[in-house]
Design a protein around this nucleic acid. Structure first.
Lengths: 338, 338
DNA sequence: CCGGTTCGCGGGAGCGCTCCCACGATGACG
DNA sequence: CGTCATCGTGGGAGCGCTCCCGCGAACCGG
């Protein structure tokens, strides 16, 4: 296995120069640099990230902690992050929390990340105090996606505002009995609370009564949405509109409506959040959020923080809030004129 | 940052013993081992994988190369692999090929993986000769998922057989004009060819005419499936049944059928492959394959190959072919009795 | 009682880089 | 013409581990 030393010997120069030349550092004449690059390629030299990491303290690797890789939303964020990280010469270490319940604990605990990565991306998790302590102890840039963590770098949408947009859309259409499908979901993810708050706030400011029985748990999954939809729609005083806190649940609600022979939007309107890849397919009205872009941005944020000079150059955590847009499709309309 | 040396000094023993004790190697008395473990934890010692890798040549990291993380199938395989790898103490380095077209080339080229990972998992890609050469040059265990690569470890289903099952199901129901929605898809993925072969073979052995105009490209995506469905169903001599080589495309076909006012399965039957998480939702008949399990198995395979003693202990590549099952749901039935 | 194992442990040489410091050569400047 | 930056380069000490080898003590059988 040819190393930097072999290249140096071949060229009769020091390993220091070879290292500098190969990494594009200043202090090397153009001619030398080119000779080094040529010989390195010729000898089939491949740098050893492990050794470089040992010596420099930088691993050129970023950890991405994700609740459920299999969910479209998270997978898309990961895709965006991977894109930017690889572009920037960083590797992406994936930590999936689904499956074993202890996984979440294990990732943050015991400093498993400590000497392994230069930065961490945490997706949609509301970190516990303990986790924040450990992340602080890491002493490395951390960016949260889809969570509001004061004092830390975050990339997200305004979940409450998005919920307001969705609910407001229904209010404007004339609905007065609007149900909410949300729920905590499995891991402690951030969005639910904010979206619920947006829903309630909008009802209040519209002067509509808040009926707790119209708030049901959909577990943020499609089957959960079906269940929730059935419960809400299979009752005499059923709502005329349903706001589901995620498109997956909204699609479930659509399904439930169809099962019960209700026409959408004639009998019941449904709106979601996300603009899931299938939302258009189901003609679902939704509040779209940029997904891949959040991953890209978050990656860019940690890359900036990692850039030479960021530490001294007065780098500080950034809060990026991306805009959302109402996509009014066919699943919403005025309430039935009973 | 406390290292192994600090632990050794604290206990007044050699770093060698500490290392052995911490890694569970033999040659350490139980008492010593316990003392070491206690002190290590107490000092907050965290091992440095980089240093360990440098010294041992093993990085305890596995690369997973995936065409599109955002696709349910691949995300699920990744999930399965992650589970097993983490369990085995390995990290998972994710390489997503979607997005930039050069990504695929870049991963295998230039030995980027060479000193970075102990093993590689390649999902659903049909490797080129060049890629195989490079993977061989790696000198590390490689396992392919969803591809048939003679001489290498593979975990997959029998795609041709699965296609036969699907097509055969339609034949048995009495269909005689059966269309196929497939196509190469974006990256050079394995499954398409085998599934097409299964479709054709079944037609042939059933003595049915092979009509090339009934084979259309669905690009292995949902929109592609809609398109394909429209083209097939919006013609006078439309088929009475459609076999789509993936559930995503099959769902698209269902959509196209509904658009055209055709009832499923009364007017047209549709069958897919995968048992996608939404297949049940759409009441789609499909040939189910274990997805997460393929990821788990592949991970287990490389872990076995990596296990101490595997190299000398006569380890050799394994071909695992997992069974598929026909899930006859509501999207298939006898042909219309025109 | 003695030679040979076995067991537990220590010493220390790397692994392949990075980075600090030093050094000579060159050019600018008063 | 001497002084002092500046530039390109070399030397070499680590980074934090692993692993080979060696050593003494305990043990065991004849």
């Amino acid at each position: 296995m040819t190393g930097i030393k072999d290249v140096a010997r071949e060229l009769e120069m020091s390993t220091a120069t070879v290292s500098r030349a190969l990494r594009g550092l200043p202090g090397v004449s153009d001619e030398t640099r080119q000779r080094v690059q040529r010989t390195a390629k010729q000898l089939g030299y491949v740098p050893s990230p492990g050794a470089a990491g040992l010596a420099s303290g930088r691993t050129r690797t970023v950890a991405v902690v994700v609740p459920f890789v299999t969910r479209w939303f998270f997978a898309s964020v990961v895709q965006g992050a991977e894109e930017v990280l690889r572009e920037g010469g960083y590797d992406l270490l994936l930590y999936n929390l689904a499956g074993s319940g202890a996984a979440r604990h294990r990732v943050f605990e015991g400093g498993r990340l400590t000497k392994r990565v230069d930065a961490v991306l945490v997706l949609s998790l509301q970190p516990t105090d303990d986790e924040l302590t450990r992340l602080t102890a890491l002493g490395r840039p951390v960016t949260f996606v889809g969570a509001d963590v004061p004092g830390w770098s975050t990339v997200r949408i305004d979940d409450e505002a998005a919920a307001c947009t969705a609910t407001g859309h229904l209010v404007e259409l004339g609905h007065r009995r609007i149900a909410y499908v949300g729920g905590p979901g499995e891991l402690d993810v951030t969005a639910p609370n904010a979206r619920e708050a947006g829903y309630r706030g909008t009802l209040r400011s519209a002067g509509l009564a808040h009926d707790p029985s119209l708030e049901v748990d959909g577990g943020f999954t499609l089957p959960g949405g079906i269940d929730a939809g059935r419960r809400l729609l299979d009752r005499p005083d059923r709502p005329t509109a349903i706001f589901a806190a995620s498109d997956e649940m909204a699609i479930g609600v659509l399904r439930a409506a169809r099962e019960l022979g209700l026409r959408v939007p004639h009998d019941v309107s449904v709106v979601g959040i996300d603009d899931h890849e299938l939302a258009g397919f189901f003609d679902l009205t939704t509040v779209a959020q940029p997904v891949v872009e959040q991953g890209r941005l978050a990656a860019r944020l940690v890359l900036d923080a990692l850039a030479p000079g960021a530490a001294k150059g007065g780098w500080h955590p950034a809060q990026v809030i991306l805009p959302t847009t109402l996509l009014a499709r066919g699943s919403t309309g005025p309430p039935p004129t009973a």
